[in-house]
Design a protein around this nucleic acid. Structure first.
Lengths: 347, 347
DNA sequence: ATTAGCACTCTAAAAAGACGAGTGCTAACA
DNA sequence: TGTTAGCACTCGTCTTTTTAGAGTGCTAAT
């Protein structure tokens, strides 16, 4: 059996209606709701077909129909009409002090959550292939050495090291010089044992110190890699959807949000699969995260500058408003582009 | 009517039993559970008295009794016997890499949550009266100036400023010198208009730049003051207590946790009222935060070094195990002391 | 091909009933 | 005088029954 135009219309009507109400939708509703002007009986016949095709089911005999994962998949892939939504007042919001990426991200997550009524997550940028830009050692006092490391994208990390032996200003200067000239422009992966050995040798009496510094460098960046920051917001929005807010499910979901460990998997999956489209949609069981199998997630990958990328995700019930969500995400990506490109003239 | 010894024992028994079961406790239970060897009838009489005194109530006729806020208050203030609990394996945990205060705090929050089965919060240190320790300007390239600011407690902040005009190494050096010699040891409040004016003057052609730098300094610290970081953990623990986990309440509570705005009030209250004891207990309506009126909170203030203080809080149902919680908190404070004092020999 | 009509199914909500935990009171007891 | 056994009573919870209605599938008519 194939999906003719009328069946498609009916499926779409079912999905959209279910989206709004959260209740199984019956033939009579469709007959009135849609512009097909068909009687409920006819709709019923069609619905029986749609059910046979595995696109909708009834939770029990004599209830209306609800879409299956397969139904949603079809909808997202082919049936969704790109409505021209009012693209809310995001612009105004976004142009606030962007002094720290972290703050911006938090703000964005919140903004998205409020706007969509779904839960949102957004990862800080990952710097896997990022180059070191600048290293600065400064002596705070006779015991403490402050190490500041700047990487591509102007992310700054710092560590305070204890000085075991005296370090005069001359040595400090040459260490600074040495580090910057040797490491500048290298990625973390470039810093191999060979370079480390050489630097330690060149540091002479301060070999130990050099090793500590290099550790700090590695740390500063590696930490960021799998300790990837994830900002979430609007977790409590799930209470707005009865199908998610019964004790057990809600607890698990919110826990997933709080812990964030599992979200990392989601992000990895998303970052890897950036093949075709810029947006990915995971529906129900397609989800790599088990606890979210009653949800859908739409993710988008952003890229601030070469190699500095991250992911934004919106998590909601399977009946989420895919059109709105995808629209919103696309808009946001565009905004991000505008916001960052001019500010970060690639190298 | 006064609270004789027997009544006290009964009240304590009620509270402890209710703590474990979460169910109203009846006279028969107490009669067996406690070591008083009294019949249920006698207990009943006593319970009637306790009810009259407003220390316990029955949720409905023919249910057992549960403690009132007042009952808990009495318990916490006078009846609680300091049991010698096994002070769990916290020690082992804590001695991990303490490279960043932030990480430590997160870890602590989590640890506490897992150990107690309650929700926890912990604020990053507040630096209101904290002294500047060190400032370092470095030129990243010809357009960008990196400003690193270290304050008491070795907290490091950094900002990247755009350079409008060329800045040669000589000027950079003297700026560094100027800043450090003028600002070192001052608190934020000490940096008044006079000093600002003078520094700007001394900076000569770089007056504008100096102003930006001073702004950064002010920002770095002021941001921290009311944008005080709060780390939470174990929010989902509330689902373990039926009295808190019905949809409405749970949603509100978790939202409070997610937003953290309201928690700030709690913290302020706690930080201010550090009169007598190091621990404060808020029971039910005593809570400054409305959404938590069904909860109890125990807070403790910690102090890393002079003027660098923060708050730890444990949030649970009113029937929380006050003994254990207070014990745990006390232990933790001691650990913190040990952990930080030797490392930060006060000036 | 579409639709009106109808019997049937099944759930969710309301009503009714059974159960039992816990109480307060009274009277007996040490 | 304080303690206890006994008993009638209350009231929430759990279970069962009833009811109402939404929605279906099928058949026959258009």
């Amino acid at each position: 059996m194939d999906l003719d135009d009328r069946k498609a219309k009916i499926l779409r009507a079912i999905i959209q209606n279910y989206q709004e109400t959260g209740e199984p939708v019956g033939s009579r509703t469709i007959s009135k709701y849609s512009d097909l002007s068909l009687s409920s009986a006819t709709i019923r016949n069609e619905m029986a077909d749609l059910e046979e095709m595995g696109l909708i089911v009834q939770p029990h005999t004599s209830a209306g129909r609800i879409p299956t994962d397969k139904g949603y998949r079809l909808y997202v892939d082919e049936l969704m009409e790109a409505q021209n939504r009012e693209v809310t007042q995001m612009k105004d919001f976004l142009i606030q002090r962007v002094d720290r990426v972290e703050l911006l991200l938090k703000q964005m997550a919140k903004l998205l959550a409020v706007n969509t009524n779904y839960a949102t997550m957004i990862t800080g940028p990952v710097y896997s292939s990022t180059k070191l830009k600048f290293i600065q050692l400064s002596k705070m006092d006779n015991q403490k050495l402050l190490t500041v490391i700047v990487v591509d994208g102007n992310i700054v990390k710092n560590t305070i090291l204890d000085l075991d032996q005296a370090l005069d200003d001359q040595d400090l200067l040459s260490l600074n010089l040495l580090l910057n000239s040797s490491l500048n422009g290298l990625t973390i992966n470039d810093i191999n044992l060979g370079i480390i050995k050489e630097l330690e040798d060149q540091a002479g009496v301060h070999g130990m110190l050099m090793r500590e510094i290099l550790n700090a460098v590695a740390d500063a960046v590696r930490t960021e890699e799998d300790g990837m920051q994830i900002y979430t917001s609007g977790a409590t929005n799930i209470f707005k959807y009865p199908e998610l807010s019964d004790g057990q499910t809600a607890s698990e979901l919110i826990h997933t949000f709080e812990e964030k460990d599992q979200l990392r998997n989601l992000v990895k999956e998303s970052l890897d699969s950036e093949g075709k489209e810029d947006l990915q949609v995971y529906i129900g069981d397609e989800m790599p995260v088990q606890t979210m199998k009653d949800c859908s997630v739409v993710t988008a990958n952003y890229e601030l500058s070469e190699g500095v990328r991250g992911t934004i995700g919106i998590i909601g019930p399977k009946r989420m408003d895919y059109v709105k969500v995808m629209d919103t995400l696309r808009t946001l990506m565009a905004q991000l582009d505008i916001l960052f490109r001019p500010d970060e003239p690639d190298q």
